[in-house]
Design a protein around this nucleic acid. Structure first.
Length: 191
DNA sequence: TCAGCCGCTGACACGAAAGT
DNA sequence: ACTTTCGTGTCAGCGGCTGA
């Protein structure tokens, strides 16, 4: 590798310390091209080498362009978002008169624990009001019904359901999805 | 940036029930 | 008896999210 670079820079001393050239040489396929050119220099091989370098240089510039575009786009987005929020604060985002820096939103009690619509039920059958949906639910296997009950009434994760049923999370995920697909198919047929 | 957790998916296997 | 279909299982791998 060292000898290759020494020989290469002997041909092109002006390219020494050029980062683009260094990264070009670091690639195995490019080293092979250089090796071939140095071993038997001719116009065809030089052209091949030049084309490979052009392609490599384009990649570098393209990556840099995309990277800087993403950076500036996100910075601009953040600036616009902040400016808009400051000019048009939502009622709940406004500061209170208390002088403690609190916003109205901070005074709203969090009732998220009691938001579950099925808190007072133990199975989906007890709370489904749509007849078609209920019929679809009843057509599922007992196991699938059980999984839907735990997932939507008790709000358990697949992992928790799996643990309680003594099977893997993947098995629950699969049955869960299958049950939903069965329900969807049944409802589509009814429409 | 990385590790851990969670959920999803594909591949493959097995047993039971239904169909031929 | 054999084949097909269905429900269910595991394993491996991937991606998204989150907290350290």
């Amino acid at each position: 590798m060292d000898t290759l670079m020494t020989r290469f820079y002997k041909h092109y001393p002006h390219l020494k310390h050029n980062k683009a050239v260094d990264s070009f040489i670091s690639k195995e396929e490019n080293r092979t091209l250089i090796e071939q050119f140095l071993h038997e220099p001719n116009a065809e091989r030089e052209h091949e080498l030049n084309e490979a370098f052009k392609s490599h240089y384009f990649d570098i510039r393209f990556t840099a362009y995309v990277s800087s575009s993403l950076y500036f786009h996100s910075v601009n987005f953040d600036k616009k978002h902040r400016t808009y929020s400051e000019r048009h604060p939502l009622t709940l985002d406004k500061k209170t008169d208390q002088g403690d820096g609190q916003a109205f939103i901070d005074l709203v009690p969090d009732h998220s624990d009691s938001l579950s619509p099925f808190k007072n039920y133990s199975t989906l059958a007890e709370c489904l009001e749509d007849d078609d949906l209920l019929a679809g639910y009843m057509a599922l296997t007992e196991r699938q019904q059980r999984i839907l009950d735990l997932a939507y009434v008790q709000e358990w994760s697949d992992t928790e359901i799996a643990r309680s049923m003594g099977v893997s999370q993947q098995a629950i995920s699969k049955s869960h999805k299958k049950a939903l697909n069965a329900l969807r198919t049944l409802l589509q047929k009814k429409e």
